[in-house]
Design a binder for these strands. Structure first.
Lengths: 336, 336
DNA sequence: TTGTATGCGTTATCAA
DNA sequence: TTGATAACGCATACAA
């Protein structure tokens, strides 16, 4: 069923059918009704590819690639971007990389496929992971505006929104020392994520300023994506009898929740026996028991800002890349 | 920049350029290299619309419309669907309706827009909300395979995967009576969501079988999408001095977490003073303190099953609609 | 191995 | 108000 068949059945030309569809006011009422009836009767739906070829327009679709929907951090990002984009008539679709996250070949294929299908007008890439050297080469081919959220420093030729992570670490340390905590341990989600490398560096630099060092044996590797892993790791640590830090700085809240539950389940108290600090301040953290102290990043604002840059870029593709930094704050609650 | 320009610059025909792009093995090596260099130099990227018009193929994109990404329930759904779809080379994009969720005009526009853009091969609709009478009319126009997850009964002409909610309620009631709880209250997320209406009906029917009734004043309205609302409502209830039920059956876990925290903050104990049962068993519930008893729905399986039906439908569009029911289970933890 | 020519389904221009 | 037709950018059957 194409426009030609409809035209034939309705006894008009294809031009009239097209007009009936796109500019109904330019078609005589009787004709319009007749055409529309034929269209309805045959459940005709026009070919979007032909339409776009004949008269190119925007797709109204924006795609946001994220590492893992399981972390609420990312849907707050999505929410922010969606708020802004929908005002301008765009639809935001989130695509979670999930298992492909460590596979740069696959990542490149995804971007390539998406681009080739012409599915979207612009792309938002979230999470520092995406920007390893192996992956970046695929991006220029896209010829679509791109904005990154929290990319690693390699991507300095791309538009991006970033969190001033150093400040977050600094605020935390200030609070911890004020509370009398000196022995800090860090729980991260793996060195393959650039975020880990960056934040560990900031912690070490900060401590160095005070002539202190971060003990290597107090740096623990877990996973950013599940509560489970951190729970298991912490349970093991508590059972091992090893010397542990007084405070655990977790590089996201999912991990903080996991270790907290392990601490409680072993009969220890928070923050009396161990204090816990998370990162991101996802919405659950406030309701966790004990409520979680966390380095809050302005997640929704990150999304909004990325969306604004993207809109800007779409209407003016030749703008030079810009980087915008947003400040974190420390939300102090019961866990510390 | 189109294929013609490239052909001219490379001194070949458009056919050769097309071949270089799609069947490089059919082009002489020198020619191929020359063409490819011109393509790279000009950052040419082909027009996906023209390509698809000339030789129609699948887009590899599947869109899943969901009410709200803020509820982890939905990303587990996404995860399940993604697992299956990616095996077959499809990309799943989640589109969260967010604020437009109560606006059926907007919903129809969204589906219409997406369909007109044609960039997906199939659609998964999640959440009972989508299927009110005002909305259904828009669907047939789409002419793309559609599968629903947990639709309301109106949508019985659409392929769908459903949870056997009645059984979930039954399992819960059985457990509660065994534990000696008789006074049940229900917390739901609003009557505009069909899920609410259905489950309340099941609860009432079940109680009626035992010659009991659900007290109208023990049916509380909150919101499915935020923990906040339920926290606030429960705080108010506890302060009001009104008579309250012994057990709160919450129609999702977000609400269960909200009221639990309110109960604890007012100095009451769970499950001693009040017991709490949630629904869905999202991943956080296990780690909440006290851990949450919840009616677990096989969320990932729901997503997987929906994906399988969709795949089936895409390769065989004339299949009659099918409905598959999946059973819930009761996960008993500390809160009850 | 390469080129020519045609068609894909729609929109838009121009005439009628 | 309507119709004939060129054009959109690409893929492909067929010819060379």
């Amino acid at each position: 069923m194409n426009i030609k068949d409809i035209a034939k059945q309705a006894g008009v030309s294809t031009a009239t059918v097209s007009r009936a569809l796109n500019n109904p006011e330019k078609v005589k009422k009787d004709t319009l009704e007749r055409v529309m009836r034929v269209i309805d009767d045959n459940q005709y739906s026009l070919n979007p590819f032909a339409r776009n070829l004949a008269s190119p327009g925007r797709t109204n679709n924006i795609v946001m690639l994220i590492p893992n929907l399981a972390n609420p951090f990312f849907f707050e990002l999505i929410k922010g971007a969606e708020t802004v984009l929908s005002e301008y008539g765009y639809y935001l679709h989130a695509h979670s990389l999930g298992l492909h996250i460590n596979d740069s070949v696959m990542l490149e294929k995804i971007i390539d496929d998406l681009g080739n299908e012409g599915f979207f007008d612009g792309l938002i890439l979230a999470g520092s992971l995406f920007f390893n050297k192996a992956f970046i080469p695929g991006i220029p081919k896209l010829s679509k505006p791109i904005v990154c959220i929290n990319p690693n420093p390699i991507a300095n030729d791309l538009d991006s929104v970033l969190v001033d992570e150093r400040t977050g670490i600094w605020l935390t340390y200030e609070h911890l020392t004020k509370k009398g905590y000196n022995n800090i341990g860090v729980i991260h989600g793996g060195y393959h994520i650039d975020l880990t490398v960056r934040k560990l560096k900031y912690v070490k630099e900060l401590l160095a300023d005070f002539n202190l060092t971060l003990k290597e044996e107090w740096i623990y590797e877990s996973s950013y994506d599940t509560i489970e892993d951190s729970y298991r790791i912490m349970s093991g640590l508590l059972q091992s009898g090893r010397e542990l830090p007084q405070v655990f700085l977790c590089l996201n809240d999912l991990m903080a929740i996991g270790i907290s539950r392990a601490i409680l389940d072993k009969g220890y108290s928070i923050p009396k026996d161990f204090a816990v600090v998370g990162s991101d301040d996802i919405s659950f953290s406030k309701y966790f028991n004990p409520s979680l102290t966390s380095i809050k990043v302005p997640t929704e604002d990150l999304g909004k800002t990325a969306a604004r840059i993207l809109l800007n870029k779409m209407s003016n593709p030749n703008l030079p890349p810009q980087r915008i930094y947003l400040p974190p704050t420390l939300i102090v609650r019961e866990s510390c």
